[in-house]
């Protein structure tokens, strides 16, 4: 029983990093109605920029974090221009494939520029695990969890209580109608992309600093974990992204403990597959899926 609860706690801690990744993912999907598979690789490039700043200038944590975010945002803008803005509306599939090939491009660029593959990344905090009764918490995981919570609150405020948030929700609901209301849809989408990339940069910084190292494979890892967490929660839903991330974390922690490490990813994909077949809208997005299907059938 203690094991099971400790696994759940570990899973929630692990899951908070997935939730961080899923928030950026879902923000882009919610506004664009398109999947940005280059999301993970973009923030991976950001983390390498952070590493560069660390190795070249021995910079402090704040400068490294800032460099990571700036790097992620710049690459995010590149992706937005090339894979989303330039491809005409309605060609969602072309955007998705385009973002996939740009993923491979980014990965290759990083391996050419950073030939050693694995690079050190300075930890944000180095403290012993916190003990609470029979349970353990890693400090960096607690920081991640706190950041995920803070970012969610901030995002909620941004979406619900600001003019920009209103415009963003309008675009997400119906881009055509938003256009007729005089909203600059292109600008709103661009800004949403930038915000999501910045979120991704923060997520990348927290995750990579907890790991203490970075490799080009981080891109693939981040895209897949973020994608799974988002789909479990329901595409386009921010609370869904958090729930999905935590669920994924808990399932992974339990399967590592009870089945073994080699079953960790397998059970994650299996869970995703089950959700897609039986509840494609995820935990929070079933309504949106039904609406989409209804729209498809409208004649």
């Amino acid at each position: 029983m203690v094991d099971f609860v400790q696994n759940c706690l570990d899973g929630i801690m692990l899951g908070s990093s997935y939730a961080l990744l899923a928030i950026g993912f879902t923000l882009i999907f919610g506004v664009m109605r398109r999947l940005n598979l280059s999301y993970g690789p973009s923030i991976m490039v950001g983390a390498f920029v952070g590493t560069l700043v660390y190795l070249e200038f021995k910079a402090n944590a704040l400068a490294i974090a800032a460099a990571t975010v700036v790097g992620a945002v710049i690459v995010g803008i590149y992706v937005e221009r090339l894979c989303f803005r330039a491809i005409r509306r309605g060609a969602a599939v072309a955007s998705m494939v385009s973002s996939f090939v740009i993923w491979m491009q980014l990965e290759e660029i990083v391996t050419v520029v950073f030939p050693d593959r694995t690079y050190p990344f300075p930890p944000l905090v180095s403290a012993a695990p916190v003990e609470l009764g029979p349970f353990f918490f890693k400090v960096e995981n607690l920081v991640m969890f706190a950041c995920a919570a803070a970012m969610t609150v901030w995002l909620h405020w941004l979406l619900q209580y600001t003019r920009f948030g209103l415009a963003l929700r309008a675009v997400s609901e119906n881009p055509r109608a938003a256009l007729f209301m005089g909203i600059n849809v292109g600008a709103v989408m661009f800004l949403a992309f930038v915000i999501a990339s910045a979120f991704g940069g923060v997520a990348a910084y927290l995750i990579v600093s907890a790991d203490g190292q970075i490799t080009p494979l981080f891109g693939l890892w981040a895209t897949f974990k973020g994608l799974i967490a988002m789909m479990l929660g329901g595409m386009g839903s921010i609370p869904g992204a958090i729930l999905g991330g935590l669920l994924l974390g808990v399932v992974e922690a339990q399967s590592i403990w009870y089945l073994g490490t080699e079953y960790r990813d397998l059970s994650a994909y299996f869970l995703l597959f089950l959700f897609l077949v039986f509840r494609p809208g995820g935990l929070m997005g079933q309504l949106a899926v039904e609406r989409e299907q209804a729209a498809m059938r409208r004649v």
Partner: peptide, 8 residues
């Protein structure tokens, strides 16, 4: 790098 850019 070339292939990805070309396809995009």
């Amino acid at each position: 790098i070339v292939f990805g850019g070309l396809v995009a």
